[in-house]
């Protein structure tokens, strides 16, 4: 059984009368990527700040690898790699100088520091630009180095706070691939985002946060199941649509069929595994299918269902 790397319970933070985080509890095991999904202002960064030990909490507890953790514990901070939302680099230092500086703060030195710095530069694809000042880097390159700094100390827990904000699609893909790779190496990853696609693509489990409270958490499938909503399949087709609709309605997994002007619309319990049977049935009814579109309930729908507002409000 995988070990729990991060456990936080009952986290609370208030600023005067405004409660930013209320009774937040998260557990992440090694090799797991946990996504904290919520709109801007939901409390993601405040939660992250308490977890990494930047911000003192009002209540609750955090343990890293079983050790109590707070703002003053340097021993547990050594286990964390933190990638803040804003670029946290010194533009007038070179890429390598930035890495070496933060590496030294984490206790690396000498040959180990140089080796680890080179490894990270290789991972983020900046080996050839390492000697140039960060000021000369493109946005995507800076963002990659920014993430690289979080990897220097081979953390047990990697915390990434919206690492793809303001990043071009190509760099975003590279970042997501990197994160997936790191989790594959046994690192526990806490990833905050307000991009539903990223959470769906990257995270083993997702926590939905809004107004400082964790509204729900689980795998994508767990969360979607909460909606008790079926997948929607739209077939663009020619032929005897009425006959095809009749045949499809007899399938156990299909709960409803509508005949539309240029095709059919079906509600299916789980579209993916049943799609071959649906297409075979329409074929037998003499209908030619020109395109298929499957719309599954997604995390956006879950968020809307749980909070009554859209994720990007």
């Amino acid at each position: 059984m995988a070990e729990v790397v991060l456990r936080c319970e009952g986290l609370r933070k208030a600023y005067g009368t405004v409660v930013a985080i209320d009774d937040l509890g998260i557990e992440i095991t090694e090799g797991e990527t946990y996504g904290l999904l919520g709109p801007n202002g939901a409390g993601k960064t405040t939660a992250i700040s308490m977890i990494v030990g930047i911000l003192a909490r009002d209540a609750g507890s955090v343990t890293i690898d079983g050790q109590p953790h707070d703002v003053h514990r340097t021993a547990t901070k050594r286990l964390i790699g933190y990638v803040p939302q804003e670029l946290a680099l010194y533009p007038d230092l070179t890429g390598r100088e930035n890495l070496h500086f933060f590496g030294r703060l984490h206790g690396l030195s000498g040959r180990e520091l140089r080796r680890r710095g080179d490894e990270v530069l290789d991972v983020v694809g900046l080996s050839d630009r390492a000697g140039q000042r960060v000021r000369t880097y493109s946005g995507g390159m800076s963002r990659r180095l920014h993430i690289g700094v979080g990897l220097l100390n081979r953390p047990r827990l990697l915390v990434l706070d919206e690492p793809t904000v303001g990043v071009d699609p190509q760099s975003r893909n590279a970042i997501l691939d990197n994160v997936r790779q790191l989790a594959g190496q046994g690192m526990a990853v806490l990833y905050t985002t307000h991009y539903m696609e990223e959470a769906e693509r990257l995270c083993d489990r997702v926590g939905i946060i809004d107004s400082g409270r964790l509204r729900a958490e689980g795998t994508r499938r767990d969360l979607v199941t909460m909606l008790d909503r079926e997948d929607e399949v739209e077939l663009l087709a020619d032929g005897d649509l009425a006959a095809a609709a009749q045949a499809l309605a007899e399938l156990a997994e299909v709960s409803a069929v509508d005949v539309r002007e240029a095709g059919l619309r079906l509600l299916v319990a789980e579209a993916g595994p049943n799609l071959p049977q649906i297409l075979a049935t329409t074929g037998r009814a003499g209908v030619t299918v020109r395109s298929v579109q499957v719309r599954e309930p997604n995390l956006e729908s879950v968020f809307l269902h749980l909070t009554g507002k859209a994720l990007r409000d």
């Binding site: 700040s49 990494v52 030990g53 930047i54 703002v71 003053h72 340097t74 021993a75 901070k77 050594r78 964390i80 933190y82 803040p84 804003e86 670029l87 946290a88 680099l89 010194y90 933060f102 703060l105 984490h106 206790g107 700094v149």
Partner: peptide, 14 residues
């Protein structure tokens, strides 16, 4: 203001 302070605070440094 440039964002490096959070990273310094998260590092194992008092």
């Amino acid at each position: 203001t440039t964002g490096t302070m959070p990273r310094l605070l998260a590092a194992p440094v008092r």
